[in-house]
Design a protein around this nucleic acid. Structure first.
Length: 567
RNA sequence: GGACGCGUAGCUCAGCUGGAUAGAGCAACUGCCUUCUAAGCAGUAGGUCAGAGGUUCGAAUCCUCUCGCGUUCACCA
């Protein structure tokens, strides 16, 4: 294509800059297949430079493409699109290539082995994972898997907020549960502490480990012991739940260790050297009542220089570090370890936090590290259209473990990705288990099971199939399916570049739809996959079925979902 | 009040970073099972892409403003 443009330029002695044009040039399959297999906007973008109408340019340029091999014809349409139609064999050869390279026909090397760190879940270690964590967990994990597939070296990271006020409350709550074990009397958990039943497990473990030797009246002495047992037990629950979802993190980083290390001193030095730190008083945010505003002199970071609305406090008035300060230190730590870009997956309730952390990463890395923060919107849990009531105060919220038990890991993973991450999502326990077209997991799995069913009937083993005569794939419906399969690498690429794993789901649903449609052509148009008296044709069509099955499995494997072979 | 996100068919949502006549699925009508799984498929109907400007060959997509909805806004984590 580039060569064609250059020849075109020199033959007509045009004076445009090829590099400039290439920036705006597109060469892609048009939305509507009626307009050919590939389409380019060349004539339209040249029209201004050459002061000629796009149609004239397009007509002059056509010949430079139509002489290329594998081109059936070229025409000019609409405002000046140059539409290219490939010869039929391009598509059947494509299937041939796919069948011969089932493992790496779609291999993309976008990542080039570069490191990238994805922090996700990072749920507080004060209780088991619940429904709200599920989406971020699945999203982050699918994104990690997707980026691994396209050649990045991905680090899956979980940040444990094991410091601060909430841990004190956790220790207190655990001690009460421990007391229950010692005295064998049940205790009411006061407001403000963690009432959940799961802490009984912690109490039990403490009792098994220490007997009754923990002296409750010397809280400071037992604090560390209770803390470490509580965290161990709860993080054990969390890791176990994640495992049920098919998730294994590479790195767990402790907030407490960040605080006790030298990183906070490091960031102070860095910020000082850049003159980004000062002692001052924040203005009240606009719209708040100034009467309620307490002026406080604090150590501040000039995050407003990096696009944040306000500067941010690094130290509390009592001299302790703020959460933001330790988080900044944590991000420095991540950058040091990763030596690559960062992705954070957060819940929608932390949206306001994004600008300051981006500012921090920007300032600390001199803009050399990019951070992309993906926000996961709410999940509405429904039962047949009606919201499920949850009361976090009473401690009886729907846990992740409950959900997996009810519908299975694969359904959870798929459904969580059937909506863009920043859009709210309905998760209806009844609908996601339905065996019908309305349920996208089922729909895709059914398509795959059908592929397998065809192979069962044909008595040919899928893995042993070799395509003998690709030219027999010539029906329009077949070509349509092949073209869609050919879009798979592009889908992967876009999903990876935009950090949008949901695109994989949508692709699989559409692929399934096209396949189901072709299947039914067996009735109307007599395009059956298995043709009794024609082994060669059967072989060609089975190859197409194999290509569908391979692509569905590839997509599912990125989402870490098991394909179903028989339903 | 500020920041961010959203507003696309009656409903739930896609829309390939600016392309051609804006797409699916539900719901509504009409068809298709002696057939490789009808757990499915085909067809009809349904739209001022919230509104108004701007950028250019070309806008649902980019910019500005207005309206509506949501989230969020100090030393919590």
């Amino acid at each position: 294509m580039i060569r064609a443009v250059e020849n075109f330029k020199s033959d007509f002695k045009y004076s445009f800059k090829v590099e400039d044009i290439l920036k705006k040039l597109t060469l892609e399959p048009p939305k509507n297949p009626i307009n050919g297999d590939m389409s380019t906007n060349l004539a339209m973008i040249l029209s201004k430079d050459l002061n000629l109408s796009p149609k004239i340019i397009a007509n002059n340029f056509m010949i430079y493409i139509s002489n290329l091999p594998d081109i059936e014809n070229v025409d000019v349409a609409g405002p000046g699109f140059i539409n290219i139609k490939f010869k039929q064999h391009v598509w059947s050869d494509f299937i041939c290539n796919l069948i011969n390279n089932t493992e790496n026909w779609d291999e993309l090397k976008i990542g080039k082995g570069k490191k990238i760190n994805i922090e996700y879940i990072s749920a507080n270690p004060t209780g088991p994972l619940h429904a709200g964590h599920a989406r971020g967990a699945v999203f982050g994990d699918a994104l990690a898997s997707l980026l691994t597939t396209v050649g990045y070296s991905v680090i899956r990271e979980y940040y444990i907020n094991d410091a601060g006020n909430q841990i004190e409350k956790l220790v207190e709550s655990s001690l009460l549960r421990y007391n229950e074990q010692v005295t064998n009397k049940s205790i009411d958990i006061p407001d403000g502490l963690y009432p959940g039943e799961y802490l009984k497990e912690v109490g039990k473990t403490l009792f098994e480990k220490y007997g009754d030797e923990l002296q409750l009246d010397h809280k400071e002495k037992v604090f560390e012991k209770v803390r470490s047992v509580s965290l161990e037990v709860i993080m054990g629950m969390i890791k176990n739940d994640l495992l049920k979802l098919g998730i294994e993190m590479d790195v767990f980083t402790s907030e407490k260790e960040i605080i006790s290390g030298h990183l906070l001193v490091d960031i102070l030095k860095i910020l000082e050297s850049k003159n980004l730190i000062f002692s001052g008083v924040l203005d009240p945010p606009k719209g708040t009542d100034p009467k309620n505003w307490k002026k406080r002199e604090q150590l501040l970071f000039k995050s407003s220089l990096y696009g944040d609305d306000s500067d941010r406090a690094l130290k509390k008035s009592d001299g302790e570090w703020t959460y933001f300060a330790t988080d900044m230190a944590y991000h420095l730590d991540k950058m040091n370890r990763t030596k690559g870009d960062l992705i954070n997956v957060l819940g929608a309730d932390h949206i306001g936090y994004i600008p300051r952390i981006s500012a921090a990463v920007n300032a600390l890395s001199n803009g050399s590290i990019s951070i992309d923060t993906k926000v996961c919107a709410l999940v509405n849990l429904l039962e047949d259209g009606k919201p499920i009531k949850m009361s976090k105060r009473a401690g009886n919220f729907v846990t992740l473990s409950d959900i997996i038990k009810a519908v299975g890991k694969d359904v959870v993973r798929f459904i969580m990705l059937t909506r863009r991450n920043d859009q709210p999502l309905d998760f209806d326990f009844k609908k996601v288990m339905e065996k019908s077209k309305e349920n996208p997991v089922f729909y895709v799995q059914y398509a795959h099971a059908r592929c397998n069913s065809i192979f069962r009937s044909s008595k040919v083993k899928e893995e042993e199939l070799i395509l003998e005569n690709p030219k027999l794939l010539e029906d329009n419906y077949e070509i349509e399916l092949i073209k869609f399969i050919a879009l798979w690498p592009r889908t992967l690429e876009l999903a990876a570049k935009n950090h949008e794993p949901h695109r994989i789901c949508y692709y699989l649903i559409e692929l399934s739809s096209i396949f189901h449609s072709l299947w039914n052509k067996g009735k109307d148009n007599n395009i059956k996959f298995i043709v009794e008296d024609n082994l060669e044709l059967t072989n060609a069509r089975l190859s197409l079925v194999k290509a569908v099955a391979i692509t569905i499995r590839k997509g599912l494997s990125i989402l870490k979902i098991e394909p179903i072979f028989e339903m």
